[in-house]
Design a protein around this nucleic acid. Structure first.
Lengths: 147, 147
DNA sequence: CTTATAATACACTTATAAGGTATACTTTGA
DNA sequence: TCAAAGTATACCTTATAAGTGTATTATAAG
C-alpha cells in the first residue's frame, strides 16, 4: 500500500528541478536527494523517456524539466515510476477479480477499490510542482487542494 | 501502491465468513477463495490472533467471526494483514522524510501523504461486512458510503 | 582535434518481502 | 482410540524493489 522508494526519490528530484529552473547535472541532484549518482541517472532517464524532462549531454550537460512546474503534477511522477495508482489487482489485471481467471464478474470489492483509487489519482493530479515550490503557499493550503 | 494478495484473500475470507454465519472449516473456505488450505489456515490464524474470528479444534471444528458483520470493517481486515494504510514511508518510519535519517523536519510531501492516507483509512473504515453482504444494497449504494 | 565531462545503453547483482509449504503436534467428537 | 480438525514453528521459493558495473556516445572548451 506504499509508493516505492524510487517514486519517492523521483518526487524529490522533480521538486529540485522545479526549484532550480536551470540545467542540473545528475551528480548534484543525487547529492540533494541523498542517493547514488547512478541511481539518480536511472530515475532521470525515466523522466526523459516520459517527456517530463529534457537532457543535455557533454560538458555542462544535465537535466531540466520539459514543462513548466504548473504543468507537472504529483500524479505524473508517481505513475511514471510506479505505474497506475490502483490499490488492488482487481483493477489492473484484466478485471480478474478472483484468483482463478475464469471468474470475469466483478467482485463485491471491485467498485470500492475503483472509487478509492480514483480519489487518490484525482487528488495527486491536483497538486502541481508550482504549488509545491510556491513560497507563498503553506503546507496547509496545499493540503486544502485535496478533496 | 497496492494492497497485498494476502490482504485481498483475507477480505474474501471475511466476506465468506460473514455470509455463512456458522463454523466453516479452513478447507472449504480455501476452496471458495481458490487458495491452498495451508495458506487459508495461515490467514485465518491472523484473524484469530487479531480477535476477528474464533476457532474450534477437532472434528467439526473451524472458524467463525468473533463479532457481528456490522462491527467488522474493510479497514480492520486490511490493517490486520498489511499493517497501517500509509501510502509513504514518510509517515511510518519515525518521521524520516528524507533518505538520511538526520533530517527530522517534515518534507513538502509529508502532509499530503498523511491526508490522503487518512482519507483511505477513513473510507475503508466506513464499509462494514454487514454492508457488503446486504442483498438489499447495490454496489453503487455501497460506494456512496465513500466520502 | 583532443580531452574532460556528462548522459546513455544494457546487463547484472543484491536485498527484501510476498507468497506459499513442510513437519510435527494438540485438541476434540464419535 | 482414531480421524478430523486447528496450532506452532520453521522453512522454502519467487517476484520485485533497489541499486551497480562497464562500455559507449555526445558535447563544449581548450
Amino acid at each position: 500500500m506504499k509508493i516505492t522508494q524510487e517514486a519517492d526519490y523521483a518526487l524529490r528530484i522533480a521538486y529540485k528541478l522545479a526549484c532550480e529552473d536551470k540545467v542540473c547535472d545528475a551528480k548534484s541532484i543525487a547529492e540533494d536527494v541523498c542517493i547514488s549518482p547512478r541511481f539518480a541517472l536511472k530515475i532521470l532517464r525515466k523522466f526523459v523517456v516520459g517527456g517530463l524532462a529534457v537532457s543535455y549531454k557533454g560538458v555542462h550537460g544535465g537535466y531540466r524539466l520539459a514543462k513548466s512546474p504548473d504543468q507537472i503534477t504529483m500524479r505524473d511522477i508517481l505513475e511514471l515510476i510506479d505505474g497506475p495508482l490502483d490499490i488492488s489487482r482487481c483493477l489492473s489485471d484484466d478485471h480478474t477479480c478472483s484468483r482463478n481467471g475464469t471468474n470475469k464478474e466483478l467482485c463485491v470489492f471491485h467498485n470500492i477499490f475503483a472509487k478509492l483509487s480514483s480519489i487518490l489519482s484525482d487528488n495527486f493530479d491536483k497538486i502541481t510542482f508550482a504549488h509545491l515550490i510556491d513560497s507563498k503557499m503553506t503546507s496547509e493550503e496545499i493540503c486544502q487542494l485535496i478533496k
